[in-house]
Amino acid sequence: MILKFNYVIMIILMMLGLWAMIAKKNIIKKLIGMAIFQTGIILFYISMGAKSGSNIPILDYYDRYKPIDAAQYANPLTQILMLTAIVVGVATLGLGLTLARKIYDDYKTFNEDEILQEIKNEHD
């Protein structure tokens, strides 16, 4: 179990993000929770591809032509996936913030309860 320490942290981070997204009343806090949730997943993928005692996946000048032993270099595939995940995370964050901004323009608050209250008395 000790050797799987990073997965435990990753799970805690994800659940923290998920909890914040659901329970936090403030919209910006929800977005921070979402970002934490996504970084949790990215941590999971990267720690998958990490090899202990391995080098970064860039072949330096000398051993480009020598036979390459895969265990020497970290796993490039997970890193590529995570580049995409980070960019997607930022894009979602950007859109989330825009929506938060428009919500603020309409309801003058970030607090979820007040907004729902305002909708209720708007409704009836």
Binding site: I28, A74, V87, L97
Partner: peptide, 27 residues
Amino acid sequence: GMGAVDVAFTEAAVGAGVSTVFFVAVL
């Protein structure tokens, strides 16, 4: 630390740098 240099670079630039700026811009 885990050997994912490119990802770290992106996270530093995109994840930490720019998204904090976006948050501050909204706040």
